[in-house]
Design a binder for these strands. Structure first.
Lengths: 181, 181
DNA sequence: CCCACATATATAGGGTTGATATATGCTGGA
DNA sequence: TCCAGCATATATCAACCCTATATATGTGGG
């Protein structure tokens, strides 16, 4: 699933600028299962535009770069459906947090404690965001299902950290550092 | 967390070849929270070798390329600890599956059904693998904690899919395709 | 009052993935 | 039995993507 397809997906929900598409991945409804950066979004929008899968409309702004508002064409809609029908790549998680924790026995207990604190806070914040954006208008079945899964998984993760952190801290004696300072 | 650090992490558990490191990310104990490909592992091992963070030992093999067995040096051990003490990058999930499902209302119900089937099977298989590798030898606190979290999260995900799939299928009428054909 | 942040687009540089190349033994289905 | 596909084992390249940076300015908190 390349960034071009991800952009088409966002645009299928309504017109948007590159900046707004970025926000959809940073904080919006796609944030818990896909991300994309400016460095890939802007070239992708140019390519989509060249292929006529999206249309551009420049909105002049005072003392700012013109806002380029993109909207999906019928051709783009067809291309999106085709991509959605293709076999999805296997899911992938990347977590420096879990990688680091898998070496917990070599780290100071205070450090492990702090990392878990931060991670729980992050999950709780994400959960508040995801649970908060309910209710306003009727949500279609797809987004509702996906959102529910995100909430269930995040809640499990946060609960696990809270339930098992003390045991982990207890088991890693502070004297087992690989390097003494 | 670049691939060099990930390789050091694998090597901290014992010497290994590039091929074996790849397997640790594809099916091994790191597979559910990090991945790395040959295209990044082999250059990373060369760089680590040049920096003397790992040592290489060539094992001649019959009618096969020599197996290069890497082992971590004390310098490498220090470098790993330093990396583990740095602030971790935020966790990220990439799931084409969830992206596609968030457009479920535009897809044929049979397709959605099939995708969920595949995904549940994938989770169950991963769970069997993760639960299976228990018991053999005493597992340190870090890996045990991380493994437990992976199991908890995967089980929640699989259970959610099984509990909510029928409702999703029921809600997406098959006549709402964006493209006929 | 100033620093940090939000808006808004764009690009260069560097890291990663996925596909491909090379070479061979083993195994399961036709 | 034969062959296709998979596992072992290393290596490289193009395509893709992320991080950091550049540019320009309004706004809000300390």
């Amino acid at each position: 699933m390349d960034v071009k397809t991800l952009c088409l997906g966002v645009l299928s929900r309504g017109e948007a600028s590159g900046y707004e598409i970025k926000k959809a991945f940073a904080e919006g409804p796609f944030s818990h299962f896909h991300q994309a950066s400016f460095g890939s979004i802007y070239p992708a929008l140019n390519a989509l535009s060249a292929e006529e899968l999206v249309a551009v409309r420049a909105q002049a702004q005072d003392k700012r770069p013109d806002k380029k508002i993109y909207s999906m064409t019928q051709k783009g809609r067809n291309a999106l459906i085709t991509s959605l029908m293709a076999q999805p790549a296997p899911d992938a998680m990347r977590s420096d947090f879990l990688f680091i924790l898998s070496f917990a026995q070599y780290l100071p207990a205070a450090r492990v404690d702090q990392l878990i604190d931060q991670r729980i806070a992050w999950y709780r914040e994400a959960l508040a965001r995801m649970e908060g954006c309910a209710g306003r208008e009727t949500v279609p079945a797809g987004p509702s299902f996906v959102r529910g899964m995100g909430i269930a998984v995040y809640r499990t993760a946060a609960d696990y950290l809270e339930a098992n952190r003390e045991q982990l801290i207890a088991e890693i004696g502070d004297g087992t550092l690989l390097v003494a300072e």
